[in-house]
Structure formats: structure tokens, C-alpha cells
């Protein structure tokens, strides 16, 4: 078999300085086969993360096993295609879920926090949720927080936390959901929280921890950071840019997606 060698780039060593795809080499002026396929593989993983169906029952079972209550809802997005084209549909509950959650909330006292575990744009990122809750729930319970059952939500956008938090009379609403997958980071989870959640809250009124994944901010570390941030948010009675501006905590970001 004849060997066709491509032209390598002599600056391969510089790859340690950046995650960017430099020094890929070339055949003629084009990408070598291995690089074409490597890119395709990463893109395929990202596409699968967006499109693989979310299994809310499996996630609910795992969360129940942590010893907390669970309530399952769906957004108004009828399917994945609608979810992707109509972000507004993912920001509100389906009629059925709204009725069920309203019934559930009737006669119950307000809570400090509702945590929402959701698919978002990456169903692969959902795997970070249980490890994160394993750290966060005991910390909150130990500090005397009144918690609503964990809400497992399908086809959810960040702002779904507003309607859910409002229905449950929660002081704070925290949603954990898959971020838009990047190449090579298809399983990245985002965490967004909002003080006094109610429909119409703007993104400037939220805070965000992003890139929660083993190779980024590990779920256990994210749990520690979230606990401190939520505590600070509750103490000061606010969230969003003002929390960001006055509390220089590492990893705290303003929402950017």
C-alpha cells in the first residue's frame, strides 16, 4: 500500500498554548483526512447532545434516590424542533403542567428555593445534575433552607424558572440545564438563579455559573460555589448584575447565552 504523507506544521508544540485547532497540517492546502474526521466526530457529539431525547423519568428516579421529592413538568414546546425555533415556548409551562403545579402549590407555604433540573440544549449535560445535587442539597438542608421538591423539566429554557418559581412562591429559583454544546464540550451544564422569580424577569436579573463538567468546573465544586452564591443572594435579597458587581466571587458570571 502506498503511503501518502501530508505536510505537517513545524509549530505543533504551540498547541499547548491554546485549545484552538492550530498546526493541523495539510494535504495540498486542505485538511488531512484524520482532521476532517476528528472535527466531524466532535460535531456529531454536539448534535447528538442537542437532539438525543431527554429521559425525565430516569433523572427523576435518580433524584428521588437522593432522598428528596420530585415533580415532573414539561414546557410549552411540543417537540425538539419547536423548542429550537421558538425559544418562547421553552420559557413557559405547558397548560397541563401549569394546572398540575398550581394544584400542587395550593395551600402550601412559600419556600426559600426551588431547584429545576432540565434538559436545555444538551441532554448529555444532564449527567452533571445528580453529582451537583449530591453536594448542594445536603448543604442547603444543613443550613435550614426550606426547599420545594426538585422540578424535573423537559424542553426548558432558562426563563422557565420564572414561572415555576412564581407558582411555588419561591424566594429563589435555580435552574440547572444543558448549555449550547461546543465542539469538544457537548456535556456542559449551566446553572442560573433568580431572586424573586416571576414571569418577565430579564437576563440582567439572573446570575450564572457555566461550563459545569468534569473538564471545566466539576459538579462538586460547582455545588460549593452555588451554595455560597445562593446564600449571599438570599442574605441581600437580590440577584443579577448587582450581585455580580459587589461580590467578586470566582466563577460568577453574568448570563451571556
Amino acid at each position: 500500500m502506498e503511503t501518502i504523507s501530508h505536510t505537517p506544521d513545524p509549530w505543533t508544540g504551540l498547541r499547548t498554548l491554546t485549545e484552538a485547532r492550530i498546526a493541523l497540517g495539510r494535504t495540498g492546502g486542505s485538511l488531512p483526512t484524520a482532521e476532517v474526521l476528528d472535527f466531524r466526530l466532535d460535531h456529531a457529539a454536539a448534535r447528538d447532545a442537542v437532539l438525543t431525547p431527554f429521559d425525565p423519568t430516569a433523572l427523576a428516579d435518580e433524584i428521588l434516590a437522593l432522598g428528596t421529592g420530585v415533580f415532573t413538568v414539561t414546557s410549552a414546546a411540543a417537540n425538539r424542533a419547536q423548542y429550537l425555533q421558538r425559544p418562547d415556548s421553552g420559557r413557559q409551562l405547558s397548560a397541563g403542567s401549569r394546572a398540575a403545579l398550581t394544584d400542587f402549590a395550593a395551600g402550601r407555604p412559600p419556600v426559600d428555593l426551588v431547584i429545576i433540573a432540565a434538559d436545555g440544549l444538551s441532554t448529555q449535560a444532564v449527567r452533571q445534575i445528580v453529582p451537583l445535587l449530591r453536594g448542594l442539597l445536603p448543604a442547603l438542608q444543613g443550613a435550614g433552607w426550606e426547599l420545594a421538591p426538585v422540578i424535573v423539566a423537559s424542553q426548558a429554557r432558562v426563563a422557565l424558572q420564572d414561572e415555576i418559581g412564581n407558582l411555588l412562591q419561591a424566594r429563589l429559583s435555580l435552574i440547572l440545564l444543558g448549555e449550547r454544546p461546543g465542539l469538544g464540550s457537548a456535556d456542559s451544564l449551566g446553572a442560573y438563579f433568580t431572586w424573586a422569580p416571576r414571569p418577565g424577569r430579564s437576563d440582567a436579573e439572573r446570575n450564572c455559573l457555566s461550563n459545569i463538567r468534569a473538564a471545566g468546573l466539576p459538579p462538586a465544586a460547582a455545588a460549593v460555589r452555588l451554595f455560597h452564591l445562593l446564600t449571599e443572594s438570599r442574605r441581600r435579597g437580590l440577584s443579577g448584575t448587582s450581585l455580580k458587581d459587589e461580590t467578586p466571587l470566582p466563577g460568577l458570571q453574568h448570563r451571556r447565552d
Binding site: 491554546t18 485549545e19 484552538a20 485547532r21 492550530i22 493541523l24 495539510r26 495540498g28 492546502g29 486542505s30 485538511l31 482532521e35 472535527f39 466532535d42 460535531h43 449550547r180 461546543g182 465542539l183 469538544g184
Partner: peptide
């Protein structure tokens, strides 16, 4: 580089694409 922007998280065209 390699069509993947590692800061903005999207895919564009690469140096190789310009050669094509």
C-alpha cells in the same frame, strides 16, 4: 483555526477553507 472558535463557541471557516 480549524474552523472552530474556542472563545465564541461556534463554527466558521478555516484557513484551509480559504485555500480551497
Amino acid at each position: 483555526p480549524g474552523a472552530a472558535d474556542v472563545m465564541l463557541g461556534y463554527q466558521s471557516t478555516s484557513f484551509h477553507d480559504s485555500h480551497y
